[in-house]
Write a protein that binds this DNA or RNA. Structure first.
Length: 265
DNA sequence: AATGCATCCAACCGCGGGTAC
DNA sequence: CGTACCCGCGGTTGGATGCAT
């Protein structure tokens, strides 16, 4: 059975968009809003398929897009998010206001990949190049999840490490180690396990930078009050937001990883 | 100036998830 | 439950541009 074509290809334009087409699309979406892409081209008088219109709008015409070069902060955030999420460009884009998944994907492939390679890091695994090959072939390595809490004068940082014992200690604390989870625990689907933050864990943007107390691994997976839970968050006063600080998930220092916000564009 | 190569990035393609029927 | 449809995503392509020779 096959899928029906998304549009009448014989009657649609392809290739670069003209100024007139852009104007038509912008005018239509301003008047009617986004959505119903399949019927939009006809309604807007465009000889394009709906997918093409959607892509043009999202990647180029949207008014909230941030044009221009990526900052160093954005670079590092993309690297961290990629190590956490892999090639989930839309989720990564959700964390970078004004950037699109396509833009980030292109930027990754043209700039950041090279940057990581120059650092001797495998862009796919975020591990040193001379190790990533060995790790990917070793499927029988036993994995132990360990949480390490480091307290400094200013904040507390928890590092979760699934790394095999061959990984150097320095790398455990400087890299984000999700891919080893995926490699060694293929059944563990973090996207399903990471739960939305509980109300008492919500933080303001200015709080996100400051770090704070930590959740244990069980809580980070949404298993509060389970027998595996060993953190102090459950004893916190849930009515006191000032004690309700986020978990520095894999060093992102962005509070509890709010999966919903990752999805939001 | 002409040519070839490398890089960038907008756009396309195919697939999977969600959902209405 | 199966099918058809729509939407969104990730991978890939190819034209445009920049740079070196």
């Amino acid at each position: 059975m096959g899928r029906s074509p998304c549009c009448e290809k014989a009657h649609t334009n392809k290739g670069a968009w003209t100024k007139e087409e852009d104007d038509r699309l912008i005018a239509y979406i301003r008047a009617h809003g986004e959505g119903c892409w399949r019927s939009l081209p006809k309604a807007a008088g465009l000889l394009r398929c709906g997918k093409s219109c959607r892509l043009r709008w999202i990647n180029y015409l949207r008014p909230d897009l941030k044009r221009g070069n990526f900052t160093e902060e954005e670079d590092e955030l993309i690297i961290k998010l990629h190590s956490l999420l892999g090639n989930k460009w839309s989720l990564i884009a959700g964390r970078l206001p004004g950037r699109t998944d396509n833009e980030i994907k292109n930027y990754w492939n043209t700039h950041i990949r090279r940057k990581l390679l120059n650092r001797g890091i495998d862009p796919a695994t975020h591990r040193p190049l001379n190790e990533s090959g060995q790790e990917t072939t070793n499927t029988s390595t036993t994995t132990t999840a360990t949480t390490t809490t480091t307290t400094t004068a200013s904040n507390t940082t928890t590092t979760i490490s699934f790394a095999a014992s061959t990984v150097k200690e320095e790398e455990k604390t400087t890299s984000v180690l999700l891919n080893p989870i995926q490699e060694q625990c293929p059944d563990l689907n973090l996207e399903l396990r990471i739960s939305p933050p509980y109300p008492h864990q919500q933080r303001q943007p200015d709080q996100l930078k400051s770090g704070g107390a930590s959740l244990c691994f069980a809580c980070s997976l949404g298993l509060q009050n389970s027998k595996e839970c060993c953190c102090t968050i459950s004893s916190m006063d849930s009515n006191n937001p000032s004690t309700s600080v986020g978990y520095d998930f894999l060093g992102l220092k962005s509070g509890v990883l709010d999966y919903r916000s990752l999805e939001m564009k």
